[in-house]
Design a binder for these strands. Structure first.
Length: 507
RNA sequence: GGGUUGCUAGCUCAGCGGUAGAGCACUCGGCUUUUAACCGAUUGGUCCUGGGUUCGAAUCCCAGGCGACCCA
C-alpha cells in the first residue's frame, strides 16, 4: 500500500518545483483553536471580525468545492474550521502564486500541517472559521489518517502507534495533559514545603527496597553485572542519613514482571522521606498530596471512576489489617497461637493457597488480598502489617509482631505504601539477611543484602517517615482510565517480529 | 501458567467450503456555505505466519506469532 504514499511524495515534489518547501522551518501563531472558539463564542452566523489571526495545525478533514473549501484544522487545543475562498486567497497571494487556491486543493491532504492567516468569521451555517487570506504548507504528511468517522479503534495499533492515536483521539491527549498536571502539582506541593528532589541511581549493583524481580544488565567498562532499580527507597534513605530532612524522587521504576491492566514493567513512583516523622504523618501527607492533585487537575474531590463515585475528601478511613480481615471473614488472626491453627481457620474461611505458607503474617496478608482488597473502593488506609512481609518497616511501638506500615487502597488497588522506617541497623541486617536466604532458596522476588545501605544505617538515621505513591495508578484514578496502558504514553508491547534471540535460563 | 476472544484494503468492518466485498480514505471529473459535504467514475489485498484436510480453504483442523479481556 505504497500508492497513497507515492502520490504524496509526488505532491511534495510538486511543491518543491513551485519553489515551496514541503518541510518548512517555522511559523508564528497568534491564536489557538480553543482560545478562538471561546473568544468568539457569541459571534453570530454570517458575521466576520476584522482581526488578523495566525494559526497552525493539522488538517483533519477537507471539504472541497470548485472555488471554495472548508478544512478542519486541529491544534493542540482543539479544532477550528478554515474557510478557504478562492477569491480572497487569490487577492492576497495571487501576485506571488497565481495558483495558490488550486495548489491548496490539489497539493494538500488530510494529515498535512499548515499555517494560516486570516480573519475570524462564523459561516452562514454557524461554524466558527478562519477566513484565510494566506496559507503556508508547513509539513507534508505522507501517510493517510485513519477513517475520519470511525477513527482508530484497534487497541494494538493505538498502543504501537500512539502518535496516530493521539492525532485522532483527542481524549488521549487530555489524559496525558492531566497526568503531567498531576506530577507537576505533586512536585509543587512538595517544593512549597521544602522537600527537595534528588535523583538516585537507576543502575545499581544491588536491587533492593522492594520484593520484585529486577532487570539485569551489564556495564562493560567496569565489568559489572547491574540491575535496574526496583525502588528508590534505599538511596533516598542514605540521603536522610546524609543530613537531608525532606527528600523525594519522582521517577521510573523497573520490575521484571508481567503485563496487565494494572502493571507495566516500567512505571512511575514517587517516594518521599521526612526525618523526624512517622507513618501517621505520612498518612496526613498522602491525603494532602492526593487532595491537592485532584483539586488542581479536576477541581473537585467528588470524582467518578469507571462509573463508581469516589469521594476523596479527607480524612480517609483507617483500619488495621487484622480488623479488615476480621470484618470480611470473621477470622481473628491475632487470636492464633500456632501456624496450623491459622491455616485451618484460613482454609475454613475459603482462603486458597495457604498450605505452604511459612507464617501467620503471610496467611493474614493472603486473606487480605483475597477477601478484602478488591472491596476497598473508597480511599482506605490499611494499617499495621505483619513484620514478615515488611522488611524495611519499624516494629510497631505497641503491637508485637506488627510494624508501623500502611497501604492506601482506592478502587480496589494499592495506590500508596508507607512505613515508619526501620532505623535499627542490627534489626535491619537480620531482616535483609533473611531476604537473601530466601533468594538463595529460589525466591525470585527476594534480593541480596545491600551492605552499603546497612553501613549508612550504622552511622545513624533519624526517625523517618517514608511514603511511596504509584503515580500511574493515581493517574488512572484521576483520568478515569481502566488500564495502566492508558496513562503510559508508550506502554510495553511485544515486538511484532518474532524474536528468536531471547535467552532463557529456565530449564 | 489457564480460559475466552480477535487478526481480511490505509481506517472501520462484512464474508464462514465454491471467482475476495462494502463504507470512508486515495486518484480522476464536476461543484462558492460545507461540516461523516454531495454527484459520477476508477484504484486498491501476503485474508497474521506455517503446515494439514479437500477437486477446491479467508472459511475446517494443527502448530506458531501479535493483541484484548477474565482467572489463578
Amino acid at each position: 500500500m505504497s500508492d497513497l504514499r507515492a502520490t504524496r511524495i509526488e505532491k511534495a515534489e510538486q511543491l518543491r518545483e513551485l519553489g515551496k518547501n514541503p518541510y518548512e522551518y517555522r511559523w508564528e501563531s497568534t491564536a489557538t483553536a480553543a482560545a478562538l472558539q471561546e473568544k468568539y463564542a457569541d459571534l453570530e452566523n454570517g458575521q466576520e471580525v476584522e482581526v488578523e489571526v495566525a494559526i497552525a495545525g493539522r488538517i483533519m478533514n477537507r471539504r472541497v468545492f470548485g472555488k471554495l473549501a472548508f478544512f478542519t484544522l486541529q491544534d493542540e487545543t482543539g479544532t477550528i474550521q478554515l474557510f478557504l475562498d478562492k477569491k480572497k486567497i487569490q487577492a492576497n497571494m495571487g501576485e506571488a502564486d497565481e495558483k495558490a487556491f488550486n495548489n491548496l486543493k490539489n497539493l494538500t491532504d488530510a494529515g498535512d500541517i499548515i499555517g494560516v492567516k486570516g480573519s475570524v468569521r462564523r459561516t452562514d451555517k454557524g461554524e466558527l472559521s478562519i477566513s484565510a487570506a494566506e496559507y503556508l504548507i508547513l509539513t507534508k504528511s505522507l501517510l493517510p489518517l485513519p477513517d475520519k468517522w470511525h477513527g482508530l479503534t484497534d487497541v494494538e495499533k493505538r498502543y504501537r502507534q500512539r502518535y496516530v492515536d493521539m492525532i485522532v483521539n483527542p481524549e488521549v491527549r487530555t489524559t496525558f495533559r492531566r497526568r503531567a498536571k498531576i506530577t507537576a502539582a505533586i512536585r509543587r506541593y512538595l517544593d512549597e514545603r521544602d522537600f527537595i528532589e534528588i535523583e538516585t541511581p537507576v543502575l545499581q549493583t544491588e536491587a533492593g527496597g522492594a520484593a520484585a524481580k529486577p532487570f539485569v544488565t551489564y556495564h562493560n567498562a567496569t565489568e559489572m553485572q547491574m540491575y535496574l532499580r526496583i525502588a528508590t527507597e534505599l538511596h533516598l534513605k542514605r540521603l536522610i542519613v546524609g543530613g537531608f530532612e525532606k527528600v523525594f524522587e519522582l521517577g521510573r521504576i523497573f520490575r521484571n514482571e508481567g503485563v496487565s491492566t494494572r502493571h507495566n514493567p516500567e512505571f512511575t513512583s514517587i517516594e518521599i522521606y521526612q526525618a523526624y516523622a512517622d507513618y501517621d504523618d505520612m498518612m496526613a501527607l498522602t491525603e494532602a498530596i492526593t487532595v491537592y492533585a485532584a483539586e488542581d487537575v479536576l477541581g473537585t474531590l467528588e470524582i467518578e471512576y469507571q462509573g463508581e463515585k469516589i469521594n476523596l475528601q479527607a480524612p480517609w478511613k483507617r483500619i488495621t489489617m487484622h480488623d479488615a480481615v476480621k470484618e470480611a471473614t470473621g477470622v481473628d488472626f491475632a487470636a492464633f497461637e500456632s501456624l496450623d491453627e491459622a491455616k485451618a481457620a484460613a482454609q475454613e474461611a475459603g482462603i486458597h493457597g495457604v498450605a505452604e505458607m511459612p507464617s501467620i503474617g503471610k496467611i493474614l496478608n493472603e486473606a487480605f488480598e483475597q477477601k478484602v482488597e478488591e472491596n476497598l473502593i473508597q480511599p482506605t488506609f490499611i494499617i499495621d502489617y505483619p513484620v514478615e512481609i515488611s522488611p524495611l518497616a519499624k516494629p510497631h511501638r505497641s503491637k508485637p509482631g506488627l510494624v508501623e506500615r500502611f497501604e492506601l487502597f482506592i478502587v480496589g488497588r494499592e495506590t500508596a505504601n508507607s512505613f515508619s522506617e526501620l532505623t535499627d541497623p542490627v534489626d535491619q541486617r537480620q531482616r535483609l539477611e533473611a531476604q537473601a536466604a530466601a533468594k538463595a532458596a529460589g525466591d525470585e522476588e527476594a534480593n541480596d543484602v545491600d551492605e552499603d545501605f546497612l553501613t549508612a544505617l550504622e552511622y545513624g538515621m533519624p526517625p523517618t517517615g517514608g511514603l511511596g505513591i504509584g503515580i500511574d495508578r493515581l493517574a488512572m484514578l484521576l483520568t478515569d482510565s481502566p488500564s495502566i496502558r492508558d496513562v503510559i504514553a508508550f506502554p510495553l508491547l511485544r515486538s511484532e517480529k518474532a524474536m528468536q534471540n531471547e535467552p532463557t535460563e529456565e530449564a
